[in-house]
Lab assay of single mutants.
Amino acid sequence: TTYKLILNGKTLKGETTTEAVDAETAERVFKEYAKKNGVDGEWTYDDATKTFTVTE
């Protein structure tokens, strides 16, 4: 399944996708990605669109 991440950081904005077996796995991948890019904020997930959003 393809999951999407929307980054709404103070200095970094953008989108990325990952293939994962479930939302929990995708969330771990995306949180590591955000951490590596210095983005830390509020996380939300929309199951209907398989989209995570992190907003600083």
Rank of each mutant, 00 (worst) to 15 (best):
T1G: 10
T1A: 14
T1H: 15
T1N: 09
T1Y: 13
T2M: 13
T2L: 10
T2S: 09
T2P: 06
T2W: 14
Y3D: 00
Y3V: 01
Y3H: 03
Y3I: 01
Y3G: 00
Y3C: 01
Y3S: 00
K4F: 14
K4Q: 06
L5W: 03
L5H: 00
L5T: 01
L5G: 01
I6K: 08
I6T: 05
I6Q: 05
L7I: 15
L7S: 03
L7P: 01
L7E: 02
L7M: 14
L7K: 02
N8C: 07
N8F: 09
N8S: 09
N8A: 09
G9F: 13
G9D: 03
G9I: 08
G9V: 09
G9K: 04
K10W: 07
K10A: 14
K10M: 13
T11A: 14
T11V: 13
T11F: 13
T11C: 11
L12A: 10
L12W: 13
L12R: 13
L12D: 05
L12K: 13
L12H: 15
K13V: 10
K13Y: 12
G14I: 15
G14W: 15
G14R: 13
E15R: 06
E15Q: 10
E15K: 08
E15W: 13
T16W: 15
T16S: 12
T16M: 11
T16Q: 09
T16N: 05
T17R: 07
T17M: 10
T17K: 08
T17A: 08
T17Y: 14
T18Y: 14
T18P: 01
T18K: 04
T18S: 05
E19G: 05
E19A: 08
E19V: 14
E19D: 11
E19I: 14
E19Y: 11
A20G: 04
A20C: 06
V21T: 13
V21D: 14
V21K: 15
V21H: 12
D22I: 03
D22T: 06
D22M: 04
D22R: 04
D22K: 04
D22W: 03
D22S: 09
D22Q: 04
D22L: 04
D22F: 04
A23C: 08
A23D: 08
A23Q: 14
A23L: 15
A23W: 14
E24Y: 13
E24D: 11
E24T: 12
E24W: 08
E24R: 10
T25F: 08
T25S: 13
T25G: 09
T25W: 08
T25C: 06
T25I: 08
T25A: 15
A26H: 00
A26M: 01
A26G: 02
A26F: 01
E27V: 07
E27H: 10
E27T: 04
E27D: 05
E27R: 12
R28A: 15
R28W: 07
V29A: 12
V29E: 09
V29S: 07
V29N: 06
F30I: 01
F30V: 02
F30E: 00
F30A: 01
F30Q: 00
F30G: 00
K31H: 10
K31Y: 07
K31A: 05
K31L: 08
K31W: 07
K31P: 00
E32D: 11
E32A: 12
E32I: 08
E32K: 07
E32T: 09
E32F: 05
E32G: 05
E32C: 06
Y33S: 02
Y33H: 05
Y33G: 02
A34P: 00
A34C: 07
A34Y: 02
A34F: 03
A34K: 01
A34S: 05
K35F: 15
K35N: 12
K35T: 15
K35D: 09
K35P: 01
K36P: 01
N37G: 05
N37K: 14
N37H: 15
N37Q: 14
N37I: 15
N37M: 15
G38R: 09
G38A: 07
G38S: 07
G38T: 04
G38K: 07
V39Y: 06
V39D: 02
V39F: 11
V39H: 04
V39T: 04
V39P: 02
D40N: 10
D40F: 14
D40C: 10
D40I: 14
D40K: 10
D40M: 13
G41W: 05
G41D: 02
G41C: 02
G41L: 02
E42W: 08
E42Q: 13
E42G: 06
E42M: 13
W43I: 03
W43T: 01
W43A: 01
W43R: 00
W43S: 01
W43N: 00
T44Q: 12
T44D: 12
T44H: 11
T44Y: 10
T44S: 15
Y45R: 02
Y45C: 01
Y45F: 07
Y45L: 02
D46H: 05
D46V: 05
D46I: 05
D46T: 05
D46L: 04
D47S: 10
D47L: 08
D47H: 09
A48E: 13
T49C: 04
T49D: 05
T49W: 04
K50I: 02
K50T: 04
K50Y: 10
K50R: 15
K50L: 09
T51G: 02
T51E: 04
T51W: 02
T51S: 06
T51V: 08
F52A: 01
F52G: 00
F52Q: 00
T53M: 10
T53W: 09
T53E: 05
T53H: 07
T53S: 07
T53F: 08
T53K: 06
V54N: 02
V54A: 03
V54E: 00
V54C: 06
V54R: 00
V54L: 09
V54Y: 02
V54G: 01
T55C: 06
T55V: 08
T55W: 15
T55Q: 07
T55H: 08
T55D: 07
T55S: 10
T55A: 04
E56N: 06
E56P: 05
E56M: 07
E56G: 05
E56D: 09
